[in-house]
Design a protein around this nucleic acid. Structure first.
Lengths: 214, 214
DNA sequence: CCTACCGATCGGTAGG
DNA sequence: CCTACCGATCGGTAGG
């Protein structure tokens, strides 16, 4: 949304069509490069301790150049955080709609959430979402809160399904918060080269909360 | 440990004893004031976004004066974080040694942990411990990791006791991590003026994890 | 603990 | 997207 097409590539004659398309794609990639680098640095050092020069250097730009793609540093944070919650929401919603049994659906949702938090593609966006959202301005924070509420409601609904199926004793909102806490805390201790896979962690959490099968 | 007695209060004659003692007490209080203010600001805005001028202003000092009590901003962070983990450790260890039944001991430990995280006296130190420790240097981080490991071992032992008493199905290290995640995540959603008290939260988490009584 | 200050660094911009 | 730059702010210090 920010400078999707720079002023430099103003509309030209028909002969310009091909180069223009390529330019747009390159610019989009550059923007995505900056976002990935910003996400990694925000996750590693925190938003306030990350400088524009850090981000620019990570994508081999000069310090003023990121501002061609983003208006402010704050806009980068906003984009990273929204990417984080968007990816988690999409992944877990897909798992929730898989049409399997309540227990299998629940485990698929746990896996999806953990994949986003711990997997290489999503973890920097997720960590920034979890730890740096307070640096957003009030408007962006309200946006994030709305998306978070929607996300938590999805888990609340899943707990109700599990209760109805007799697989869980309590489906209070508090139970959702405990569950999300156990999930989100994994970013503090999970190591990719540790003994446990994401699928194993999901299964153990499931078996801790649900009644034994059969 | 940092400037416990400033050079200004060098040993004098006997007549100096009383004023000197008072001076020391005042200086100690000033240091504690700074630490509380730093904890609050670190918890609210994060370490990197908090300036020495913020902290000095919060205790009505000029911007250079905190350095009379602390060598660097980093030393303040270290002191805040160590105060945080020290207080949690002490509170939960006391609950663990209460000599009650396994279930009652467990609930007392949950309450103690949550009191430190959510209560007015400890929450800023605890939040700084949980969210800002990454800004510590390697040496201080190792110190914190050691204390954290000791703390987690205490919970691990408690889970083993519960297992032995037949109150819990699984006492793996992973279960400890899930439990601590559910506990530590409360700082993200708990509101003092919300509907639930710390004791209620502790009881609900206990009943979610333990088998029904009797 | 204050006054007065310093060098370094920061987010952002004008003009190309 | 780079060059060159600006005003603001930062952690920290010397001297009292």
């Amino acid at each position: 949304m920010q400078n999707p097409v720079p002023a430099a590539s103003a509309p030209g004659k028909a002969v310009m069509a091909a180069p223009k398309r390529k330019l747009v794609a390159e610019e989009t990639n550059r923007r995505a490069d900056i976002l990935r680098a910003a996400g990694r640095l925000f996750a590693e050092k925190g938003y306030a301790a990350t400088t524009i020069r850090d981000i620019a250097g990570a994508v081999d730009m000069q310090s003023g150049s990121p501002f061609y793609h983003f208006r402010t540093k704050h806009d980068m944070l906003r984009a990273v955080v929204l990417e984080g919650i968007g990816a988690i929401n999409a992944a877990v919603a897909q798992a929730a709609a898989s049409g399997k049994s309540p227990r299998a659906t629940f485990e698929a949702m746990l896996r999806a959430h953990l994949d986003q938090l711990l997997g290489a593609e999503g973890r920097d966006f997720a960590a920034t979402l979890l730890h740096e959202s307070r640096h957003l301005d009030a408007e962006a924070q309200a946006e994030v809160v709305m998306l978070k509420d929607r996300y938590e409601a999805m888990w609340q609904k899943t707990l109700k399904d599990l209760k109805r199926a007799g697989l869980i004793a309590v489906d209070s909102p508090l139970a959702s918060l405990f569950l999300l806490g156990a999930l989100n805390w994994t970013v503090q201790w999970y190591r990719p080269d540790g003994g446990k896979s994401v699928a194993q962690i999901a299964r153990q959490l499931s078996s801790l909360l649900l009644k034994p099968a059969g």
